[in-house]
Nucleic acid binder design. Structure first.
Lengths: 114, 114
DNA sequence: TTCTATAGTTACCACGTGGAAACCAGGCCT
DNA sequence: AGGCCTGGTTTCCACGTGGTAACTATAGAA
């Protein structure tokens, strides 16, 4: 694990604030922009656009525009994006069983910090 | 996966720049500050201290000070920290087999971007 | 008293991410 | 001409992370 390790690319990719939530929101099939926005509570349009563009750039989501009226834009996971669900689930599983311990540790640490 | 999901805590923890490298550096046993610094190339003392303190706060690494001359300080993974190696390896495995695809996707995307 | 070694700390700064609020574009509908 | 709908864009800003460089603390050894 050196400084330019491929894991670094991936960890920074999935470690950002919205990536995991967006990927989860798309795991059951294509969704429109406003549907993703509703599913991922708290995200602003600007940031959602940024995140989706970035995921599209990385080949994790695909964007399709349908020339209807009004215009319809769908986002879906690519096969690469779907395969990302596997390690993401591993992290989620660990998180669900250990996040409590982390929070306890933080409280204990902060309590001692004079 | 809501906004205050435990996965978020964990993902932001392992998604930062130095956490995965430090954890890897400690996976084979205790190391001193300067040994970690040497193992994790490119980290400055300030940032290493910050990262180690933060990992200590989260109960992932433990810090031991030995009153020798000169002083010796050792860092090691706690059991919690060792269990973190599992999802970290899952991510690493995914990264090693898919990082290339991400980089290709980026180049392709950037090439099209007029 | 000065040098050495370890393990930091301090002050300052640059950058990127993310957020708030307002605005924009295409196109049918009335 | 004005309104509505989706899917954004634009501007401006606050904050946290990370980086540089220099400095500190402790204490034995020369």
């Amino acid at each position: 694990m050196s400084a330019d390790c491929p894991s670094r690319v991936v960890l920074q990719r999935i470690g950002d604030k919205w990536t995991p939530l967006i990927v989860q929101a798309l795991k059951d099939g294509p969704r429109r922009f406003s549907a993703v926005r509703a599913a991922v509570e708290g995200v602003t349009p600007k940031v959602l656009t940024q995140s989706l563009r970035s995921l599209e750039r990385d080949g994790i989501v695909a964007r399709s525009v349908y020339a209807e009226v009004p215009v319809r834009v769908e986002y879906r996971l690519t096969p690469l994006g779907e395969s990302l669900l596997v390690p993401l689930d591993a992290v989620r599983a660990w998180a669900e069983s250990h996040a409590g311990r982390i929070l306890e540790a933080r409280e204990a640490f902060d309590a001692v910090a004079d």
